[in-house]
Write a protein that binds this DNA or RNA. Sequence first.
DNA 1: ATGCTGTTATGACCTCAATCACAATACCAT
DNA 2: ATGGTATTGTGATTGAGGTCATAACAGCAT
Lengths: 199, 199
Amino acid sequence: MMIDIDTLLAMGATYKKVNAGDIIFQEGGYCTFYHQLAEGCVRWVNIDEEGKEFLQNMIEPGECFGEPPLFDDGPYAASAIAETDCVLIRLHRSLFLQLITEQPAIHFKFTRLVTERFRFKFMLLKELSHHDPEHSIQFLLQYLKEKRKNICNKCNKVTLTRQQIANMTGLRVETVIRTMRHLHDKGTLLIEKGKVYYN
Amino acid sequence: MMIDIDTLLAMGATYKKVNAGDIIFQEGGYCTFYHQLAEGCVRWVNIDEEGKEFLQNMIEPGECFGEPPLFDDGPYAASAIAETDCVLIRLHRSLFLQLITEQPAIHFKFTRLVTERFRFKFMLLKELSHHDPEHSIQFLLQYLKEKRKNICNKCNKVTLTRQQIANMTGLRVETVIRTMRHLHDKGTLLIEKGKVYYN
DNA sequence: ATGCTGTTATGACCTCAATCACAATACCAT
DNA sequence: ATGGTATTGTGATTGAGGTCATAACAGCAT
């Protein structure tokens, strides 16, 4: 989901470069911009007191991120950190709201986007409640596959590390590694030189 | 969140009575109606193969439920079951979409609603990933308190049973009971004759 | 080749929530 | 009061995932 770049620029959006590791915005902060990723990779995470990360989403080019506060006036729900050097497109919140008011079709696209994200969290919550690592990991992989997200379009290689999968499911790396080995043995997925292929 | 009843009726919405235990709609089914609860109580749950329930929401009068498919064309994300005898208001999906198209203010209200629900699942997911029952239960209670949901407005009595809290957090009843006893001992909440008071 | 770094892999031990089993209590209807 | 049912409460046991420690490997730069 993204807004057409020309439309954004016509509304007054601007490009912004950030370096790998830069914090784009922080959980709890006040939101002034609509963000869309043009190049690079951004991770959207909650970081707790002990520094442990819960990974909510790995954002790829063309996706928008950090939308909740645009619609419900709350603070940012998580922090966005540049995983690599990135190019963002930003549009001031008031202009964004003006845009979706003027163009209901775009508003409908966003209602749909938020609904889809809600649905994903909804299902993930249900799956994680089983406390069955195999189940949880398979659900996540299946979702990524369907959305063609964090997965190579040509070779079906999963671009997430075991650590990142652990951070998205609340499991530990070791558990993810062991469980995925087991899924490989069962034939559910393929591990070659440590890389995971799912199809 | 609800749509003004007169507006609904003017669009052609109809009342429907259901008995306690009736299934209003089922997970995976195709969605034809917008639903709003007028009287009674509805539980919105995922039920797995073994019959174990994951409770996504306890719906109280004035709330709408089962909205995701209205916006993203997917199937129902969970089943709605009447907890007590209920009175619903239903509006055909096409008329609902017509309504929000004609009245952007209502559309904005729904974008906000879905966003808030997304935010809640988002935060809950993060909290549950800690695998700390005390943490999880306190987060849920805090949320219910802020939303004044499933909590008595006069006496702060939590209307959810331990079993229901277990089904919302993926914990077992015994764990919830023991953890809440502990929270009582710590003074975080009050248990009197088995009933929980949180403020 | 060599060294360096991030990721994957594996073994040993431990903890805490799940599980099972059963008792006590609250509450409603008669 | 009495009975019935739903919910809360408590003890004993156990097993799966967390934790810690350490090794092996892949990939890249020099």
